[in-house]
């Protein structure tokens, strides 16, 4: 490019230099995050005005295991195996769940699901059906005992699950400005964030919120509820 000096190239290449990465991760980002506090954004899908625009939603529940060792992961695997039939039967009774599965990723037990409609209704109805079964899972995860028994601490349990559901980055990247500003309690009505500061906002959010879901995800049949699919297939809703 005309007029590009050797120094421009040097600056552009900075993010690739090992010493710069070190500097950024240990000094620049922490300092910057302190200067510009960025609360972790809440997990789960954001509501749309018309719920019908977003019938199917994703839950990416990440629950850090207390015991971060192969043994700890094995306990998690056992707890799931022992209760999974009841849990799946419970999900069936909730009636609004398309898919759900448990996975262990790193030292986290994760439950990943696709459900219809409101998150809190999904979780509440689920706990109302499976009762104390989920307590066995909560025993193994950090902070789990505070919301146990799930049945009698249902409001706190729902809040806990919500807090451990991954933040879902907006499908339109620039929407992050608005979300982040709203979370900081500042109103930025007129002047939209400069496009080039977008990656900064991402860095700050990723700093506050190490795991996140990139966008709302792919849906093969968007807008259809479980019951509509079941009805079409004649498998009873």
């Amino acid at each position: 490019m005309a007029g590009e000096s050797g120094f421009d190239t040097f600056v552009d290449d900075l993010p690739r230099k090992w010493w710069f990465k070190l500097l950024a991760n240990w000094i620049v980002i922490p300092f910057w995050a302190w200067l510009r506090p960025t609360p972790p954004l809440p997990g789960g899908p954001r509501p749309t005005p018309q719920p019908s625009e977003n019938v199917q939603r994703m839950m990416n529940l990440v629950m850090p295991l207390k015991d971060k060792s192969p043994l700890g992961r094995a306990y998690a695997a056992m707890a799931v195996a022992q209760n999974v039939n009841e849990i799946f039967a419970g999900l069936d009774n909730v009636g609004t769940v398309h898919f759900a599965r448990f996975v262990v990723i790193g030292d986290n037990l994760c439950m990943i699901s696709v459900y219809d409609g409101d998150f809190t209704n999904y979780i509440r109805d689920f706990i109302a059906t499976v009762g104390s079964v989920f307590d066995a899972i909560m025993d193994l995860v950090e902070g789990g005992e505070a919301v146990k028994p799930c049945e009698t601490k249902i409001d706190a349990f729902i809040d806990w699950i919500h807090a451990h559901d991954l933040f879902q980055a907006p499908d339109l990247p620039t929407d992050l400005f608005r979300l982040q500003d709203a979370a900081r309690g500042v109103e930025r009505k007129r002047e939209p964030g400069l496009l080039r500061s977008l990656s900064r906002e991402y860095i700050l959010q990723l700093n506050a919120n190490p795991n996140f879901s990139l966008g709302g995800g792919y849906r093969a049949y968007p807008g259809f509820s479980v019951a509509q699919v079941r009805q079409k297939l004649g498998v009873g809703w």
């Binding site: 719920p51 409609g117 409101d118 509509q228 809703w237």
Partner: peptide, 19 residues
């Protein structure tokens, strides 16, 4: 809220009215 959101404004309770 459960009534307003899932039932009044989405019709999730019956596939014939969902949406």
């Amino acid at each position: 809220e459960a009534v307003m959101y899932d039932w009044i404004n989405l019709g999730l309770q019956d596939p014939d009215i969902t949406g």
